[in-house]
């Protein structure tokens, strides 16, 4: 029995597998941080805001109001007078394709 416990080739093999795992994680988990939040009401776009600039905007419509906040590259609904409050509990979004929907107010915030 002359096979060694660990060789440099073993370590190379392990490193390759680790790189493969990390690559898969990167490819699948962050399909890219988004760079803008697109807000629409009744399927009409009412504003596009860069995620790089912090801002607070109160969107008032006939349905009610939603306070949309952009902070540190993330977007969330801080406050709203909708009946379910789902838009507030949705939390922060920042990745391409993520969205916050407020059904009672027909409001959609989507990251692009």
């Amino acid at each position: 029995m002359n096979r060694k416990l660990v060789t440099w080739l073993d370590i190379l093999l392990i490193v390759l597998f680790v790189i493969l795992s990390i690559t898969i994680i990167l490819v699948f988990s962050s399909s890219g941080e988004g760079n803008k939040a697109v807000i629409s009401v009744d399927e009409k776009i009412i504003g596009e805001y860069s995620l790089n600039t912090d801002l607070t905007r109160e969107i008032k419509t006939d349905y009610g109001f939603n306070t949309v906040v952009i902070l540190n590259g993330e977007c969330f609904v801080l406050d709203a007078d909708c009946r379910d409050g789902i838009c507030i509990s949705r939390g922060k979004i920042s990745k391409v394709g993520e969205s916050i929907v407020c059904l009672p107010h027909k409001l959609i915030v989507e990251i692009k």
Binding site: R3, V6, T7, L9, D10, L13, I14
Partner: peptide, 10 residues
């Protein structure tokens, strides 16, 4: 060139 650990990891 491979050790027991390398074959096992594969």
């Amino acid at each position: 060139g491979f050790g027991v650990v390398g074959i096992s990891v594969l």
